[in-house]
Design a protein around this nucleic acid. Structure first.
Length: 478
RNA sequence: CGGGGCGUAGCGCAGUCUGGCUUAGCGCGCAUGGUUCGGGUCCAUGAGGUCGGAGGUUCGAAUCCUCUCGCCCCGACCA
């Protein structure tokens, strides 16, 4: 039992912070609401980035970079956008010791400045589509920050595309939602429900907002990625016009989509336990740690270390990267060393001690289950490969089973209230109400509509009683 | 931004009400040595603090007063 981590049952949010601290993922910065992402946390982010970026490239996108500062007036051009973001803008009012004529906002998202540039770049239907992504930081002056989940500054990617037709833009929006779903589920082992947001949860300035909604291990929901169909709202606000195939001037249809360092929070809260972090093998910076065990300095240095290093080299070659670490700190007690690696979330531990040496085996210990396996030397490499695959799959399955076990149906509003009050988790209910209804539900239950489930599952709305309401997930959310 | 709480060693805290009994303590962590060693041993020694900051009251301030900065928790808002 870890002594530096608060058990989940006692205080979930303290547990979350303890896990981050013990795993050295992040630390508080001297600036309110900002965090320092430490090397291990950043390495996880780099792995997520690599997987996402490959998907973006595969689907025809290119990367570019737009400025951090955006003229304040740009936000005024789209009514809903300014209303949505004005409260959380950080503003630069001085430069070079002088007050600026027009303040610059530190970007909270880049639809505006990118829209401005697109209006210059797009002249003809032949210029379309424009499929650009940028990796950057953004700033939103959050009232209540939490490491990874909600910080004033965070890292993300934002894709911005412009298209000839509504259909194409809509198709793009859904395609990228699919990309997010794939990366979240296959790489981060975070199962998500991908679907549309209700009107009250829509991105400011979007016609349709889609989400990948995940359930954390306390039953609360976390929006893990979003994709927006922006219609012609930003095209009109920023005059993104082109000559169409008929020679007429027309507005583009645009989309935008983003996924942030928040997903690291999702990984933590989906998989970790009371011993600390558990990282899915596919995004783990270190996939396996080899621990030579001996009290005898000469055996450790002359026999075990070389053997461990040789094994690590072979494993790295097999896994295609520098994924194996050798723990040479034989002065420390084994239990201390085990705990360190446990808390760092390394998926697999390989114990190589004198007993193993004598038996011609290596002991493999899974981080996710604690299961131990003594494996003959010649089978170590294939077994490690197999175990990493198994761990990834099992982590996903456990998370998905957990979500399903904590998802309940409500036929009436009272049922919904009762479930949210008692066991929590996700509640499936037919909903066809207005944003005002959503506000009321939130005020009365603490839950919000998280995602409209895809498919043509229609029924009677729990609020209005009207038919043709869509099946929707309600939950308390981060 | 409303309601609560807190700033004392890297972290967690006691001391503040009732100023002097502290040369500012304790636990964890850290360093060194020993002991132990396959899921957080035990012991010894040691390093580490302008008590958030600025004024003030007093013979004397971590402690009282004024101002100020910051953080955390609960709400409202959000990737």
């Amino acid at each position: 039992m870890a002594r530096n981590i608060t058990p989940r049952k006692d205080n979930y949010s303290q547990w979350y912070l303890d896990v981050i601290k013990a795993a050295e993922l992040a630390d508080y910065a001297p600036v309110r609401g900002c965090m320092v992402i430490r090397p291990t946390g950043y390495a996880i982010w780099e792995n997520i980035q690599a997987k996402l970026d490959a998907e973006f490239k595969r689907t025809g996108h290119v990367n570019a970079y737009f400025p951090l500062l955006i003229p304040n007036s740009f936000f005024q051009r789209e009514a809903e956008h300014v209303e949505g973001f004005a409260p959380e803008l950080a503003m630069v009012t001085h430069g070079g010791g002088e007050e600026l004529e027009e303040p610059y906002a530190v970007r909270p998202t880049s639809e505006t400045v990118i829209g401005y540039m697109y209006s210059k770049w797009i002249q003809s239907w032949r210029d379309l589509p424009v499929l650009i992504n940028q990796w950057c930081n953004v700033m939103r002056w959050e009232k209540r920050p939490r490491l990874f989940l909600r910080t004033s500054e965070f890292l993300w990617q934002e894709g911005h595309t412009a298209h000839e037709t509504a259909e194409e833009a809509q198709e793009e929006t859904i395609r990228m939602l699919g990309v997010y779903r794939k990366v979240l589920e296959e790489e981060l082992a975070v199962p998500v429900l991908a679907g549309e947001k209700t009107a009250g949860e829509r991105f400011p300035g979007a016609d349709h907002t889609y989400t990948c909604e995940a359930m954390m291990s306390d039953g609360k929901a976390l929006q893990s990625a979003t994709s927006h169909f922006l219609g012609q709202n930003f095209a009109k606000a920023f005059n993104i016009q082109y000559q169409n195939r008929q020679g007429e001037l027309a507005y583009c249809w645009t989309s935008s989509w983003g996924m942030s360092t928040r997903t690291i929070g999702a990984v933590i809260m989906t998989h970790s336990d009371d011993d600390g972090l558990i990282i899915p093998p596919r995004i783990a910076p270190v996939k396996a740690v080899i621990i030579p065990l001996s009290k005898d300095e000469s055996i450790a240095e002359n026999v075990l270390f070389p053997k461990a290093k040789e094994l690590a080299a072979k494993l790295d070659e097999e896994l295609g990267g520098m994924f194996t670490k050798v723990d040479t700190d034989f002065h420390a007690r084994p239990a201390d060393r085990f705990f360190t690696h446990l808390q760092h979330g390394i998926p697999l531990r390989l114990e190589l001690g004198e007993k193993d040496l004598a038996a011609g085996t290596v002991r493999l210990v899974r981080r996710d289950t604690g299961a131990k396996l003594d494996v003959k030397n010649e089978s170590v490499i294939p077994t490690v490969k197999q175990l990493l695959t198994d761990i990834q799959a099992d982590m996903f399955k456990r998370a998905k089973d957990f979500r399903e076990a904590n998802t309940h149906d409500a036929k009436t509003y009272d049922e919904l209230k009762a479930i949210i009050d008692s066991e929590g988790g996700f509640v499936r209910a037919y909903f066809g109400g207005t944003p005002e209804d959503e506000v009321r539900i939130r005020e009365e239950t603490g839950a919000t509509p998280r995602v409209i489930l895809p498919g043509d599952n229609m029924g009677k709305c729990i609020i209005t009683g009207q038919d043709n309401a869509r099946l929707t997930i309600f939950a308390k959310a981060y």
